[in-house]
Amino acid sequence: MMPAALSEATPLLSVRDLTVRFRSGRETVTAIDRVSFDVPRGRVLGLVGESGSGKSVTALALMRLLSPDMAEIAGEVRFDGRDLVALPEGEMRRVRGRHLSMIFQEPMTSLNPIASIGNQICEPLRLHLGLGRKAARDRAAELLAMVAIPEPRRRLDQYPHELSGGMRQRVVIAMAIACEPRLIIADEPTTALDVTTQAQILDLLRDLQSRLGMAIVMITHDLGVVAEFADHVQVMYAGRGVERAAVRDVFGHPRHPYTGGLLRCIPDFDGDQDRLVGIDGTVPSLTNLPPGCAYAPRCERAQDDCRIVVPDLEAVAPAHRAACFHPLEFAREVSP
């Protein structure tokens, strides 16, 4: 499948100026605005943001799961050398589920409540790999074993409601890895789960990722999950990328004031602090963004230029980009 010309050095997924506009009546809302990032083969990119940051829309746009009647997608999503934005729907369908698959937040919504687990896992196997009934079933049992579900053969005949939340998410993961995709987009895969279950699912994902050599785009609002799981991080705010770097740099030396503020918001787990440091104000509404930097109204470092011009995501250090005219100094360590 992979064109020979593409070396290992080219990223598996390369997103350039991805823009999604939603039309509702006479209004157009820009949900994500010129977002760019790369995901190297076999690595994990964390896409972090709060509500309205556009992180889930990004996922849906990458998968081309947004209805063309409502959403207008521009920019380039180069996956394995092909531009997914321009791909005809028929071909996209062959990519989706085969080379590119998705894990959703709430397992119950991505599982069909009236189909057995076995049938649901077999579906992509038969569709994309052309396996026969028997072979698909064997493979499905294997997959359930891979995601550490006990008694996989027996589970094949069970229905989603008979499983616990954690088990369901394991089934969803088994479906996502069924065709050994090169990239998995995981949209808040552990948000609906308890913390001990979350830990297990993250361990499982990490284990599968290194065994199968998949790349993962991990979309989450939980900085802890990103810190643990991702190699690179893209922080999003109000539909724009505001900071992008290796996870160590983002958490160790955040340069965008929003990232710095977000990190300070997390209650300390080791030391003691009298007060939490929040970020004042509210997350802006996408229908009513300020003219300049969307974070400017909440930012303590904002100057006049921030309120007029939208800063581009530019290099502030090698392999570290921030969209800020007045970034935080490098030496600044943030406590948690």
Binding site: V195, A199, D203, G224, V225, A227, E228
Partner: peptide
């Protein structure tokens, strides 16, 4: 609980 200091990872499968 996920740690927010990168590098300070959880011990896997403790849960």
């Amino acid at each position: 609980v996920p740690k927010t200091k990168p590098g300070a990872t959880r011990t896997p499968t403790a849960a």
